[in-house]
Design a protein around this nucleic acid. Sequence first.
DNA 1: TTTGCACTGTTATTATTTTAACAGCATGTA
DNA 2: TACATGCTGTTAAAATAATAACAGTGCAAA
Lengths: 217, 217
Amino acid sequence: MGSKKNFKNLPHKTIERLSQYRRALLICLDNNKTHIFSHEIAKIQHITPVQVRRDLMLIGYSGTLRKGYNIQELIDLIGTIIDNEEGLNTTIIGMGNLGRALIKYLSGKRSKLEIVAGFDTNPDKIGNKFSGIQCSSIEHLDKIIKEKNIKIGIITVPEDQTIEMAQKLVDAGIKGILNYTPKPVEVPDHVYLEEYDMITTLEKVAFYVKMAEEQKK
Amino acid sequence: MGSKKNFKNLPHKTIERLSQYRRALLICLDNNKTHIFSHEIAKIQHITPVQVRRDLMLIGYSGTLRKGYNIQELIDLIGTIIDNEEGLNTTIIGMGNLGRALIKYLSGKRSKLEIVAGFDTNPDKIGNKFSGIQCSSIEHLDKIIKEKNIKIGIITVPEDQTIEMAQKLVDAGIKGILNYTPKPVEVPDHVYLEEYDMITTLEKVAFYVKMAEEQKK
DNA sequence: TTTGCACTGTTATTATTTTAACAGCATGTA
DNA sequence: TACATGCTGTTAAAATAATAACAGTGCAAA
Ligand SMILES: NC(=O)c1ccc[n+]([C@@H]2O[C@H](COP(=O)([O-])OP(=O)(O)OC[C@H]3O[C@@H](n4cnc5c(N)ncnc54)[C@H](O)[C@@H]3O)[C@@H](O)[C@H]2O)c1
Ligand SMILES: NC(=O)c1ccc[n+]([C@@H]2O[C@H](COP(=O)([O-])OP(=O)(O)OC[C@H]3O[C@@H](n4cnc5c(N)ncnc54)[C@H](O)[C@@H]3O)[C@@H](O)[C@H]2O)c1
């Protein structure tokens, strides 16, 4: 029962929102704001002020009455919760359109998550740099992952290569995988997996658009 | 109280899973399977067989005992629920790395969602085709959206252009927006909005990797 | 100094989503 | 025929998440 909360029990949804809050806060900080109200954060994220306050309560942060939350303090606190102290090195497998878009997007963000390597099989890409990240041959994956202490792998290879590459990552001792291909993978329990397929999101939008149209009739 | 269920009340999560089931089923169909068990679908999607059966119950589909679900029938039924009969035309705003990756990925999928136009401001891109999709000047956005009856817009422009482009889409009468930039937008109630930021997902992976590591200590 | 206001922080309630429990049934087997 | 097996479909319970309700508080205006 030390002073440190057991953040392990934070709701999954709260974890996601903390990440989002931080990004919104970083933007506000850039605009020379020092404090922010719960309803301001809420508006940016399309949620309710109560939900914001509740999330902040869960992480044990208190704002100042009539002044709101200290942006810098809150950013720092969220950092101590969701970031790894030493940072977590990350790699991208498959430097195609999507892989390069992600690298470009992620590099330069103020995040403890650093992309430290990229891999591909195409000889034209191997040896080149993309947004400052060296692209290596997939043959050296195991070696480089261990050398650079890489913990997270993002998969953006062609669909039919997915399973094989996921296995390679697992064998190299990776701890988390983010799979952007439409091919679902299986990983052992000790590896945390997230999969994202854009079609799901798009079809969801389509469904609710359809519903709204039918409603009008 | 007609025969048609009010699918409007389906849980959001079920909608997402239906889309995922269908994609898994389409793959199975390609492999010449005709039937599938709930536990097989479940394994592919990393969920429980009960959840699959419950979802299918909600949409009123029955399988055959000891034989499972008829894949083609189920695909068709899911289609009648989440697809718009006439299809929903879709456009991508910003034909950069990410926009092109999405176009390439989406074109050719068996989906009622067809990308029918792309827009950009860069003269080098305007007039060209990417994965078969014509890229037009953003100046013609309003005209083309109306002409082609486009209902859904995907935003992949640079962050600082996001708000403006979302507004343009709304003004042109779009019904759903999928925003892939990290800049949150606001839209009127009659427009359905989804936002996705990869950093959230990545930071979530990082958090649970961190938790797993701390657990071991 | 009193009152109203505009916030925060917490607990209570409700809604949503997942999981569990189990009844029912077609098929295979003895 | 009886009975075990391995599925489905449904209802009940539990877990998770969102919303509502409201007490508390410092400031500002009267
Ligand atoms: N989740 C989404 O929203 C989404 C969106 C678009 C694309 N995708 C998927 O992402 C993947 C990549 O899409 P893309 O448009 O970048 O494709 P792409 O063809 O442009 O890129 C694939 C890259 O992977 C490389 N590659 C091939 N085999 C490899 C291997 N075994 N190891 C390492 N690298 C290898 C190729 O040389 C190429 O550079 C595809 O599976 C696609 O379906 C997903
Ligand atoms: N959600 C995610 O996971 C994710 C991942 C990567 C990138 N992104 C974001 O997606 C966006 C695009 O990324 P990218 O790597 O493709 O960038 P990019 O620079 O390669 O592409 C942007 C494109 O938009 C065009 N453009 C600029 N202004 C425009 C306007 N007003 N109207 C129409 N087109 C315009 C540019 O000419 C360019 O072709 C960025 O905002 C980036 O931050 C999001």
